[in-house]
Design a protein around this nucleic acid. Structure first.
Lengths: 211, 211
DNA sequence: ATATGTGAACATTTTCACAGCT
DNA sequence: AGCTGTGAAAATGTTCACATAT
């Protein structure tokens, strides 16, 4: 039960969970791998394989209990606890992120917001006051912040990342369009919107349009 | 020269291009696969393999000509032309996207913006006036819009996607946290911020922290 | 001399197919 | 009977190693 789990598997698990929670809300009590696969745009075998990496959660001849499987997935994904997240950069992207009530719903509490720009400071964002980025280390350390969302210009991203990591952050979600270097043991995820559009452009350019 | 190209390969090509353009700006004229690999956090063999899927762009014993390879990659990725993009949803996420001057820089012109909310309409966003979403089909058709960025609530996403596709859109970049269905031949990319944080949470939860 | 381009080896991921529970 | 869980097979992706071109 301790293989190395691929990125794509984690994304699928995340998706299964979202689907299961919607079904749960609709009162569906049981689901088969076939049905779940359809909704997640994958195959039944893939669903079963993904889940089997972590245990046996279904009943043969019957399928999976929806609330039970959802709970298992939450535990697997580390969503059965709350995470303290800091947001660095209170510009447009940063403020768009604050809108997402999907974050607190999922256990991610944005407990601190930072910006270099004085004019943005002081305002309160869903409970967090925008602070001077000088206080990053202090706050990350004191509030035991595990993850940092970087919504700063590319030129500042590496420096902020280094400081966050030095202060104890273990995960970084990077919106700046630069390739960050982080030490071993720190997780990094990039969201690059231009790259997504480029991937679309490539798909539309190819003669064999497929996905 | 017409294999099926994987998603990850496209992402790497996109990254190579960004690196090459920075080098180009710094006046670097030549680069080796080793050097490019280092900057892209991959291996030299991977770089050469990726490029070899599309042709032979280097000189043995020498490396790659930076501007020439950049031009090749732009052509491969379909960035040697301009794309007409519509944005549906002028809320926080939508407005954050408009900030990105990375879009026009890369050939993506946001030529139309739509919203259901009357209060948001009429304002001009970098040349595009926010219009009633009722006009989506008409405008997508008339302005030959190829891609649509969906920054609408999940409940509206599928309907808007269907309408955009019916009007001729071939690519969709979806920010709504729902699994969209699109017909064969239409490309779909999802950006799901919660999922990214979940992947981070999973990585931090695992005993073997690796990336 | 040096660094590309590429077949072959290796590793990983996905699919198949069926034994084994319920 | 029906659907999961899982080894084995197939497909796909990555790394190696070296012949080949400059």
């Amino acid at each position: 039960m301790s293989r190395r789990i691929s990125e794509t598997t984690v994304r699928r698990l995340s998706l299964y969970l979202r689907i299961l929670e919607r079904m749960e809300g609709q009162g569906t009590s049981t689901v088969g791998s076939e049905d779940l696969a359809d909704r997640a745009a994958t195959t039944a075998a893939q669903v079963r394989k993904d889940l089997s990496l972590f245990g046996s959660f279904g009943k043969r001849g019957l399928g999976y209990d929806v609330p039970k499987l959802a709970a298992e997935l939450r535990e697997i994904l580390g969503l059965d606890r709350r995470w303290s997240v800091a947001l660095v950069g209170a510009g447009r992207i940063g403020s768009a992120l604050m809108e997402y009530d999907g974050f607190p719903d999922r256990g991610f509490d944005i407990v601190a917001v930072f910006d270099v720009d004085e004019s943005r400071r002081g305002s309160r964002w869903s409970g967090a006051t925008v602070m001077d980025v000088d206080r990053l280390e202090e706050v990350v350390r004191d509030r035991n912040i595990q993850m940092v969302i970087l919504a700063v210009p590319g030129s500042a991203a590496q420096e902020v990342a280094d400081r966050a990591v030095a202060a104890g952050a273990q995960g970084i979600l990077n919106f700046a369009p630069v390739q960050l270097r982080v030490p071993e043991g720190v997780s990094l995820k990039d969201v690059n919107l231009v790259m997504e559009l480029e991937a679309l452009a490539f798909a539309l350019t190819q003669p064999d349009v497929e996905e």
